[in-house]
């Protein structure tokens, strides 16, 4: 049984007919070919698949695409305007907040949401804020620095 849905992704409405069990992460990646959203685990732990659903950060591996019917989704591809990066993206580049880059899209989407909730977070608040995103390369240090730099740039 397929279900008709329309999801607005990065500002464009996408009507589609999907299996109800299709995860939002796979809808973005395999139906819309937006492969910037990564899938790093199967138990909602790693956060690599984080996107914004109606403006809030969610793990898109734990949302069915049908649940996003009628919703607005922003993915990593929807952040930069051409070569003009958001403060968070710029912070990740400037502060060397990524190595292999696999966790990065999810980490950036969470960081964006964190700064929206708390524009001037302390180091502890940053660390707690990204506790739902695993990174195996950086030891998080430069990610914390990157978010701090983005907060500063935004103030």
């Amino acid at each position: 049984m397929s279900t008709e849905i329309t999801v607005t992704v990065n500002g464009t409405a996408h009507p589609a007919s999907v299996e109800p069990r299709l995860l939002l992460a796979h809808f973005l990646r395999d139906v819309l070919n937006l492969t910037g959203t990564h899938v790093g685990c199967d138990t909602s732990q790693c956060g690599a698949c984080t996107v914004h659903l109606n403006g809030e950060a969610v793990k898109s591996c734990t949302v069915f695409a049908v649940q996003a019917d009628g919703a607005e989704v922003t993915t990593i591809e929807g952040l930069a305007d051409g070569d003009s990066y958001t403060n968070v993206q710029q912070g990740f580049w400037d502060e060397h907040g990524l190595q292999c880059g696999f966790c990065t899209p999810g980490m950036i989407m969470t960081s964006e949401a964190l700064l929206k909730q708390n524009p001037d977070p302390s180091e502890d608040e940053i660390r707690a804020g990204i506790a739902g995103n695993y990174c195996r390369c950086t030891g998080y240090q430069n990610i914390v620095n990157a978010i701090g730099a983005a907060a500063k740039a935004g103030s």
């Binding site: 492969t35 070569d83 580049w93 060397h96 899209p105």
Partner: peptide, 19 residues
């Protein structure tokens, strides 16, 4: 030197095997 890999990786344009 800042990394030349990063512009693609911070914008979701990296290409991993699942891509």
């Amino acid at each position: 030197v800042k990394r030349t890999e990063d512009p693609r990786l911070i914008t979701g344009r990296g290409k991993y095997v699942d891509d």
